[in-house]
Design a binder for these strands. Sequence first.
DNA 1: CATGAATGAGTCTTCATTCAT
DNA 2: TATGAATGAAGACTCATTCAT
Lengths: 213, 213, 213, 213
Amino acid sequence: MAAGRSGQTATRRRGSRSAGNSGSQRRGELLGIAAELFARRGYAETTVRDIADEAGILSGSLYHHFSSKEEMLDEILRDFLDPLLERFIAIEAEGTHPEEVLDELIRHSFAAIHASPVAVALYQNELTMLHRQPAFEHVGEIGDKIEKIWLSVLKAGQKSGVFRADVDINLSYRFIRDAIWSTVRWYRPRGKYKHEAVAVQFLTVIHGGLHTS
Amino acid sequence: MAAGRSGQTATRRRGSRSAGNSGSQRRGELLGIAAELFARRGYAETTVRDIADEAGILSGSLYHHFSSKEEMLDEILRDFLDPLLERFIAIEAEGTHPEEVLDELIRHSFAAIHASPVAVALYQNELTMLHRQPAFEHVGEIGDKIEKIWLSVLKAGQKSGVFRADVDINLSYRFIRDAIWSTVRWYRPRGKYKHEAVAVQFLTVIHGGLHTS
Amino acid sequence: MAAGRSGQTATRRRGSRSAGNSGSQRRGELLGIAAELFARRGYAETTVRDIADEAGILSGSLYHHFSSKEEMLDEILRDFLDPLLERFIAIEAEGTHPEEVLDELIRHSFAAIHASPVAVALYQNELTMLHRQPAFEHVGEIGDKIEKIWLSVLKAGQKSGVFRADVDINLSYRFIRDAIWSTVRWYRPRGKYKHEAVAVQFLTVIHGGLHTS
Amino acid sequence: MAAGRSGQTATRRRGSRSAGNSGSQRRGELLGIAAELFARRGYAETTVRDIADEAGILSGSLYHHFSSKEEMLDEILRDFLDPLLERFIAIEAEGTHPEEVLDELIRHSFAAIHASPVAVALYQNELTMLHRQPAFEHVGEIGDKIEKIWLSVLKAGQKSGVFRADVDINLSYRFIRDAIWSTVRWYRPRGKYKHEAVAVQFLTVIHGGLHTS
DNA sequence: CATGAATGAGTCTTCATTCAT
DNA sequence: TATGAATGAAGACTCATTCAT
């Protein structure tokens, strides 16, 4: 998806108009540019003119593709969150033991950060704002569904005895969730840490803690 | 900042007597109001009029106390970060065993979230923006110093054998840091979770992990 | 200017595509309106709203064509000063005898006042302010080049004996310069004094003085 | 008068309040400060706070001495213009031959620039603005009276044959007036040019012109 | 599809002035 | 006389959005 464009600089595409680019292709390009800017500078701090400049067109021209700046944000988030939720549902459905499911949820989360750093960053940074906007209820709902999956796995594991009984599941979930998704702030897809290695390290700490013996 | 420019042509130099004596009661009140709004809505999304409205004065009157919106943010962050760093330095200095120092750093962090939720939220939310603004170098520097303290404690613990050798210290530090400070997003000072209890839960997971045996 | 800085927090970089293509008809019209108001009321005393009102648009719309009020002033001055310097250079290059060159410089100066009274008035009135603004170094540089031309002509004339030896060239230059350009304060292009007549009168006094024999 | 203060920097006078400074003395000091700032930065560009800062008080406190910023300007101009007009009247009354009177008017003008550079600069820079403000009619009237004196002297000289008949008196007056008073822009009271020497140079050119023979 | 011009509401900031203490 | 807090009107500039061409 669009999130992969991170690191691309302004390229003028004026000439390429001649070929029969389908409307939806151009739309995708514009969304990619917007996503990157939103993630980098923040949604409110990014102007439609910033986006248009980067795309090599005038800001008014963006409105041939999108009816508002908000629509762009909505589409970007949807493109990221819908598949993410689907995947989480599948992981839960396919797994048998809670500890295996949890590990897989964690592994996929780091993979998602690797695949769509821009969308993840955007989602993380704008969460508070999104919760205040009724137009983004949809986003909150997906978040709730995801939370339910994680919590049910954790509870199942605690019930079956693989997870310790003396930890508060709600608190633990939040610690885990925040630790995972916050990595987007420093993780670089082409950096020295591979996402699989980060996941392994995280699983190590979560499984047995930091202390020896 | 970009504002300004600001914008007049004539060059001005406002002497030593900067707007508002640093030690003023009213100033403190206004800072409190600003901090809360900044934390709730975000710095850029909070207008000086919002702040003035809440204070019951006109927006222009704020400039009797502060020379800019930015100055407010700077002072709020400084008032929080300077004592925090000092406290971390003291904890490291007083402690003897790395595992005790780490626990105390963690406990104090949750206590700080409890004591200054607004400032912590503000700091968390605006971090990315602050890093781009040269005017807030100071903030970044304090962050670096804090990071050094935590990393040195973790390294010492690994060297002395109390922390596992198979975890990457840099990664673990980031997991811990992010998990702790992200709690500000849901922690309520008067809510059902006491900050000491949250700290205990966190320490439990960090010490021995989530899994049994 | 107050705008400033205008005043947002996020750092922006508006690419090469600066506001408004340099070669636009509307742009020229707006510059003409601005120039007149600047000359009449003074630059600082003229608001962008004044300009917009006169143009029949809203003040914000001006920023579609210019990125700042200052840019307008800069362009107006440049449009006047660049050709003026070129012309002075040509006059010096073409002339043979210093006294002829001086007369021609003087005649052209009055012609310039006639042709561009607004720009001349603007330049005269804002000189002191322009010297304080680093953004207008360019203007000062052109002024210096023009001064060099006049002084070299005067010195040449004194050396060749056509100008009196008992006058200080630097002082005389300033007297002449100020007397000429100050006429813009009262000269009216469609008034009873033709600019050629004013030049003749001025040359008469400069050549032989006010006293008889 | 106050104009002599040019080049003085901000000095706090807080302590000197103990001695029995008469109110009018403080008033004079404040006017001096204001005059200098008005002359240097322009009236509109100088804020009451600039003046207060320089005087070591708060801007609101200025209103114990003056009822408005405009009143300060008015008083400064009056303090300069009233004696100037009186002196010009005296010079005309005392003189016998027009050529002597003109020379004396010129000499005294340069002396006035030397004695009150700040007031002269202020008057020169704000002339256009003053003409638009009904509150400053008074200033315009004095200007008119002064002009009448100069013109009557010039006409008398032309009639008596000491001044050339082929020059337009109105134009010549303006050339002379502008050349003289514009010197305030570059004249420095403690610079290398003495005001008497400048006057002599000017008289030389005016008497016999720039050309030899 | 895109341009170029404009809108209208809003942003931060400035500043002369007032007034209770 | 001076302070310190505030007013209220204005200023430059921003930006999402619209629309005729």
